[in-house]
Amino acid sequence: MDTPLVNPNHKKLWLAAIKPPMYSVAIMPIWVGSAVAFAETKVLNVPIFCVFMAAAIFILAWENISNDVFDSETGIDKNKHHSLVNLTGNKQLMFWLGNFCLGLGLLGIVAIALWQQDPTVIGIILLCCGLGYMYQGPPFRLGYQGLGEFLCFFAFGPLGMGAVYYSQTQSWSMTNLAAGVILGIATSLILFCSHFHQVEDDIAAGKRSPIVRLGTDKGAKLLVWFTASIYPLTLLFVILGNFPMWTLLSWLSLPSAIKLCRHVLTNHNQPDKVSNCKFIAVAVHFWSCLFLGVGFFIGNV
């Protein structure tokens, strides 16, 4: 185990380790899925909304903590000063703290299932957690094979959104599935951006991330298409009548999307400069999903 790092910017390292902005990844599926449910039923179960929101935050905390634990076992995080394992020097503590967060999150999901007397939501969320574990957890470590974005797409997109919608309506919706596709793309975008600055460490640890496979130049060009797809898809679903016109408010996130694409195209091969691109991707995710949900709420009032 590496000696815990001593750094004058210790507080900044802890903030980077905890990743507060990243928790929009947990919040937005609850927001958008509940908004779609409200648009179609004119009913919002506020207690279930709040419990699901808290549960999602705890489950994402487990995901983030356990990823640092599993990455510490492969050596890929040896230069990651803001790894929770490196900061504390106690991998076992982080492992059990992560499991504690998972337990709290699943407790909330069980409460919803008991409330509804229907185990469906438990099954879907357990599947999402399984995908999250397979991302970095042994023996799978599918993220090391470049499959993390696919797992992320389904866990936070169609599956996660399906669980949220079902918790509100105890039914299924093609409109919610369409919204889940957009949310899945926006969420996977964040993970995709996290690879640009750590290509050397990934190669050394045998991690074949999409950027390792493609190279930073091709990865940056793919990012443009990846990011841009969110907007015509939303327009298409409006034209098809799946989404209310007000969901085009999500296009207000375009300035962040343009900023992200320009930044990565310019700095894709400069790790120090491109390392913050995932936070710009978080902004794209947050604003696009926030206004998408607003569109569903106000488009059917």
Rank of each mutant, 00 (worst) to 15 (best):
P210E: 11
I112W: 00
L191C: 06
G33F: 10
F196Y: 13
A61S: 08
Y133V: 04
V46C: 02
K259M: 13
C152H: 00
K12R: 11
I18F: 11
D2F: 09
G75D: 08
H285L: 06
P4K: 07
L93E: 02
L97R: 02
G215I: 11
P255G: 14
L260Y: 01
K91A: 14
N45R: 10
V238A: 15
N242L: 15
T266Q: 14
P20E: 05
Q145T: 03
Q92G: 03
P4Y: 07
L131N: 03
L214E: 05
V301R: 02
Y133T: 00
M134T: 03
V264F: 08
V121R: 03
F297P: 00
K259Y: 14
I18P: 09
L126G: 05
L15V: 08
L223G: 12
D217I: 08
T41Y: 04
Q136T: 15
L189S: 04
N269Y: 00
A204I: 04
F237Y: 15
A35P: 09
A179M: 07
A220S: 15
N176C: 15
A220Y: 12
T227H: 11
L290P: 05
M28L: 13
N67Y: 07
G215S: 13
P255T: 10
L249D: 11
S250R: 07
L97E: 05
A61T: 05
K42C: 08
T3M: 08
C152A: 12
P255W: 06
E40A: 09
S275P: 00
